[in-house]
């Protein structure tokens, strides 16, 4: 039995051998223990540095669209949304000199563009806006003339106002 155990210790990569290292070989067990600690530290560092802070901010405008020609817009509120994101978007667009109305009703026929949005929220100690997509559409065809998206996870979270500002600014940065 003792000889069999010693043979297993000399073959530490077999599952039984690894168990034997913990139980019967103190020196090799210490090495393995250090290796495991190293793996654990690496895992935690990887999670902190790459995992917890995902940031993305994009904006694009269709080449055939001219955003400067859009003087009136209607921000279509998501009926079940109560966070006031539509108001933040409307205020931000007004700061760019656009006449903006907002509501849940069908858009007025005389607007140059309809603005839709999708906001995703997440909880981490408190609620925060994880992702915001804003799309400026042709009111007649629903074609997306311009789109912006921002995605920030908990550690680099932005306030809803900052998210709106970032998305709208990125859209207008991409315009001609």
């Amino acid at each position: 039995m003792r000889e069999r155990l010693l043979r297993q210790i000399k073959q530490p990569f077999t599952p039984f051998g690894i168990v034997l290292i913990f139980r019967h070989s103190n020196a090799e067990g210490i090495i393995l223990k250090k290796l495991l600690k190293l793996f654990a530290i690496l895992g935690v560092v990887a999670s902190i540095t790459s995992g917890c802070a995902v940031n993305r901010a994009t904006g694009s405008v269709d080449p055939s669209a001219d955003l400067s020609a859009l003087k009136t817009m209607y921000v279509k509120r998501i009926p079940e949304e109560t966070g006031g994101t539509n108001v933040l978007i409307a205020d931000k667009l007004r700061s760019k000199g656009i006449v903006v109305t907002t509501g849940t009703e069908p858009p007025p026929s005389n607007v140059d563009a309809v603005v839709t949005y999708i906001d995703r929220w997440m909880w981490d100690i408190t609620m925060y806006m994880l992702e915001l997509t804003i799309t400026i559409r042709d009111p007649k065809t629903d074609f997306p003339l311009a789109t912006g998206n921002s995605f920030h996870t908990s550690l680099t979270r932005l306030s809803p106002q900052e998210m709106v500002n970032e998305v709208v600014d990125n859209i207008y940065k991409g315009s001609k």
Binding site: K33, L36, F39, L42, G43, V44, A46, S50, G51
Partner: peptide
């Protein structure tokens, strides 16, 4: 040690 190993494996898998 098994917990350490599992945590490490989970972190590596997720990232």
């Amino acid at each position: 040690h098994k917990l350490f190993l599992a945590a490490s494996a989970l972190a590596v898998t997720l990232t």
